[in-house]
Design a protein around this nucleic acid. Sequence first.
DNA 1: ATGTATATACTTGTCGACAAGTATACAAGA
DNA 2: TCTTGTATACTTGTCGACAAGTATATACAT
Lengths: 228, 228
Amino acid sequence: MITGEEIYRDLLKKITELEYMPGDALSENELCAAYKCSRHMVRDAFSRLKEKGLLEVYPHRGSYVSLINLKQIEDILFLREAVETAAVSAIIRETDPGDLPELLAGAIEEQKTASAGAEADLPAYFRADDRFHGILLEKAGRASLYRLLEDEYIHLRRWRNLEIRTTRRIPALIQEHEAIRDAVLHRDAAEASVLLHRHFDTLKFAASVDEGRDNSYFYKNQTEGERK
Amino acid sequence: MITGEEIYRDLLKKITELEYMPGDALSENELCAAYKCSRHMVRDAFSRLKEKGLLEVYPHRGSYVSLINLKQIEDILFLREAVETAAVSAIIRETDPGDLPELLAGAIEEQKTASAGAEADLPAYFRADDRFHGILLEKAGRASLYRLLEDEYIHLRRWRNLEIRTTRRIPALIQEHEAIRDAVLHRDAAEASVLLHRHFDTLKFAASVDEGRDNSYFYKNQTEGERK
DNA sequence: ATGTATATACTTGTCGACAAGTATACAAGA
DNA sequence: TCTTGTATACTTGTCGACAAGTATATACAT
């Protein structure tokens, strides 16, 4: 027997990891046949996914995986920059380094090994990247805020999984992490702020340009739910 | 005929405006009798409220309006400080004032008139307060981010409605707003950052101390859902 | 009086059936 | 050939009934 929570988590995973692509149709009937459960369960999961902005339900027509809203991605990147700049500021203001140097070094090392091989282990790199930023919040005493923002970061992860060309940029991103780490360890808040801003600006740029992108995966004009 | 969306909005309003107090029991049967609809609708609304952390459902025992998690309130205040500091920084960095002075002056004026009378019009003051902070994000080109964070700010508003003694502090808060406005208009990012930090710190302090507070409305030890 | 077992009245969880709306395939007529 | 109307096969929306678990009140035995 499968619980509604499990269905929700499974669908969430398949949407963020692009097993279901943006725009794909999801049928309640097909899914409840696949999970061997009643439609009620699937509908409950749909309701939650809809609430999170990952699914769009058109009554009597069908349900579709949400397209990616690049304006929203920019917003979330802006949010992360703001939160992490504040976290760094708090770290520098309030605490002594503690085990922060080792933790950041560990996360950076993990990023290097994950991206070093003949072909990069992208999931592992992304996990290490998340960990680098997570450490900053945790050491600022805001680990719970990181959990609170998980729902927003889901969109970020889905977009990241779609932007394959990120691969080329990984070495530069790691260098930026190292510079940020150095600034934090030198307790230079102004420098860290500038570096974080630059770091997220490169990401925001990736979210704004559309060089030969498959536009069927993105909303145009930042408007959602405009299916004719 | 009432739609599920309406039930959800009504319950949300009654929870944030404390018509239903933290800890109150909400019965599916009673509500679907009150709304003259099937339990399905109420359950759907419950599901969304649960997802937002405003309702806790204990299977076969009952559903209760979530208590207020002060650690979470602090986190959201930290979040707001971070976002608005970044917004101010962006405003100063990228744009000329435009109509910003008039907008901020208007919001501050509205706060004064709402809090001036023999007894303050708290709802009006809160709306003007939200507007002041909303203007900052809007002028930084992040109006959509403000909407994105609405869900988090719901918790903030519920807490604010419960903290009656805020009233005494309103004149000081308005003064802080004026100081922030001045720093922004003088394009002094560092000063604005310090003032915002101080502004939110006074709020965070209000969320941390518990002088003669009715503790039945708050989680102890920052743990949720520990009903025995 | 006190402890224990049982019945009862709640609670939320789950299901299958049917209602209602939409898009498509198809056939009939011009 | 093109247009138009109709039947059909989908889609999601809604409902009432029943299942299952919990807490409380009650009767009974000690």
